[in-house]
Nucleic acid binder design. Structure first.
Lengths: 96, 96
DNA sequence: AATATTTGGTTTATAAAATAAACTAATTTA
DNA sequence: TAAATTAGTTTATTTTATAAACCAAATATT
């Protein structure tokens, strides 16, 4: 009845990041930080976890001379996100 | 854009408990344990937290001679649950 | 009748998470 | 040239979730 909620996605910040990345081709670190309101340290850690899970790809390069981290969601990430939202319905849809 | 998700509800087990209690007049400990698949210890702790937050009422009595803990959602709990589900939409509904 | 098991929990300990604080290294700006 | 900003990472701290250990009463077993 209550499906297991993927703990990697059941986290406010990681979910916000995935939510952005699913609607956009790619997004850089600064943009993600602005949109989520997270601190850089927290964001850095959570991006790393999503990357480790294979849910996002991370490309670190330089824009001019400043470092630039660009993230994009993977197929695996899309599936996971969709599964998560489906599973969540089981927790929210009781009332009707 | 990304509303804060009430940390008391953004927890798999507590959310499951609230999900049950919002659809039912009351539920006892054993029923909640069966439905959620939680261990007694975990459930006990999370019920206590929901009670402390004023999201549920907890009535401890005896059925015959065995202890019996009955839980029911409060108005505050209903509001919080509804606010939480609304906030979550902001995280899920991006794709379209 | 004594012992083991089950029921309905609570308390305590542990492992995992989220988060912020401190730091780095390069770059502007004053 | 010193101070502040940018774009991060690493490390430390606080919270959390969760399970393990425990307790008291009831029921079943030998």
């Amino acid at each position: 009845m209550f499906e297991e909620l993927d703990p990697l996605l059941h986290s406010q910040l990681r979910l916000a990041v995935m939510s952005i990345l699913i609607s956009v081709d790619e997004a850089d670190f600064v943009y993600l930080k602005e949109q989520t309101g997270a601190t850089a340290g927290n964001l850095s850690v959570q991006i790393e976890k999503l990357k480790e899970a294979g849910y996002i790809g991370v490309n670190k390069s330089f824009r001019g001379k400043m470092p630039c981290t660009v993230c994009s969601i993977t197929k695996k990430g899309i599936s996971a996100f969709e599964a998560y939202t489906r599973a969540l319905q089981g927790y929210l849809g009781k009332k009707n």
